[in-house]
Design a protein around this nucleic acid. Structure first.
Length: 191
DNA sequence: TCACTGGCCACCT
DNA sequence: CAGGTGGCCAGTG
């Protein structure tokens, strides 16, 4: 069986601002985003975060504008991002590996995408939207979010309004939320 | 199959 | 308020 992913190539573009590097990976086949890196201090770490998940990658400036847009969201600008531009499909195939692994992860991401900038929801809220009590599984799914910043997993916090964990560290989570105008005192969201 | 492991939650000291 | 305990359930090997 032929895998279409054999001919797929991921283009990785990086935008630098304020000493931070933002990378985005885009499929040359589908033209959808397949990966976003959290900001890093160096360009190699930023590129590596995306490239280690894909076999064929090419570094290019082609999509630097998208990387820049992501950096602006990080800074707190309210920018509408089409969900259509993300590769959210889930394939069960062994040959063709999708970045989103299961329907559950996909639904968690879609619910999270609805949270407006400047606001937060809880892990429990997301779980209940999916009709389950798998609160922890929601956290696990968001921990694997291939599209951080654009799919705002940083806006999902604990039920007691404490910040909770983040792949880039809770300090980074706090920083993004504050950039969006969320008030935080002693690691707790103030409504 | 089955026994873990978790970006959690609620409840109890 | 901090820390501990049991519970929940999707993924993983």
């Amino acid at each position: 069986m032929k895998s279409t992913s054999i001919h797929d190539k991921i283009i990785i573009s990086t935008y630098k601002t304020d000493g931070l590097y933002f990378s985005v990976g885009i499929s040359s086949l589908t033209h959808r985003i397949v990966g976003i890196a959290l900001p890093h201090d160096g360009v190699s770490d930023s590129v590596a975060e995306i490239s280690r998940l894909h076999q064929e990658c090419e570094v290019s400036d082609e999509y630097i504008g998208i990387a820049k847009t992501i950096s602006r969201i990080y800074k707190g600008e309210k920018i509408n991002f089409e969900l259509e531009s993300l590769d959210l499909k889930v394939t069960g195939s062994k040959n063709i590996k999708s970045v989103v692994k299961t329907p559950f992860e996909r639904e968690v991401l879609i619910q999270t995408a609805k949270i407006p900038s400047g606001d937060v929801r809880t892990y429990k809220y997301i779980a209940e939207k999916l009709g389950t009590r798998a609160y922890r599984a929601v956290g696990t799914a968001l921990g694997k979010n291939p599209f951080p910043i654009v799919i705002p997993c940083h806006r999902v916090v604990k039920s007691n309004m404490k910040i909770g964990e983040y792949r880039g560290g809770s300090e980074m989570k706090k920083e993004i939320l504050e950039n969006e105008g969320v008030r935080i005192i002693r690691d707790r969201i103030i409504k």
